[in-house]
Amino acid sequence: MALPIHASRLERIWHYTYLTICALIFLFLIAPILIIIPLSFNAEPYFTFTEKMLSFDPTGYSMRWYDTLLTLGMTNPEAPRNAAWWADAWANSTWIRAAKNSVIIGFFSTILATALGTLAALGLSRPEMPFRRTVMAVLISPMIVPIIITATGLFFFYSKTGLAGSYVGIIMAHATLGIPFVIITVTATLVGFDQSLNRAAANLGANPATSFFKITMPLILPGVVSGALFAFVTSFDEVVVVLFVAAHDQQTIPRQMWAGIREQISPAILAVATILVVVSIGLLTAVELLRRRSERMRGLSPG
């Protein structure tokens, strides 16, 4: 990208203009995500920087919105903050309950999506798989079909089968939405997989299960884990299906946020958003590390 010495004056001007444009686009991408972090520490119920915040006056900042996340829904939020208070928060706080639900649903749907998706990806990446393209298109379609259509279909289906308002129903729906991500990441990992390793294992007397767990699994594990992380994020961020098929008391974090944004948006939402941004930074780091590990491992294997 460095500018050659022979570049004309016009080219120089354009080069720096171009870099500025790129910087602005990066700012457009990242600023909205970072801006909510300081705003969530606002002492006032406003969505913009107050005078005090701009002059870095400590009284302009507070943790009150994070505190609301704990106290909202508690039976006795005014009590002294001892073990009983924390037990009360753990049991009754609206946001903590939503978080628990989200984690439970996310965990099981991730397990389901990852197990089924990895198995299917193994089949799909075999050259002899019949109707490969069609099957792949069907399995990826939950990612492409608008979520409102999926949710509407599930609403009709679940109200007939009695799955509406049940955890099983939501977990199955979220697993379906996460499956495309697992398939895409695992098949991408399998593209670089050297099939002769499995043949060598079989040649040395390993049965298919042994060669899968000892040879294939360790090599594709980074892809499987990042697929699982994608599936978890999909479930953890999903609100439309939950709105359509969940019971009233089955609150999840996105559903609670949705309600909060639609009814009366308070900076408490920004506190949740900040926590979620921190979570996604963690997940992104994990996926990046996994990707590099996978590349390193594939770089070692011949072919």
């Binding site: 089924l116 998706g117 198995l119 299917a120 193994l122 089949g123 799909l124 075999r126 002899e128 798989m129 019949p130 099957v135 069907v138 399995l139 379609s141 939950p142 079909v145 259509i149 999926t150 279909g153 599930l154 009709f156 289906f157 679940y158 007939k160 199955m172 729906a173 697993a175 379906t176 499956i179």
Partner: peptide, 22 residues
Amino acid sequence: AFYLVAPLLAFVLLTFVLPIGQ
């Protein structure tokens, strides 16, 4: 190869294709 894909295909048919049919 098909047996490996079959469980997921059945699952997606049940939780996705069937609801869309409905």
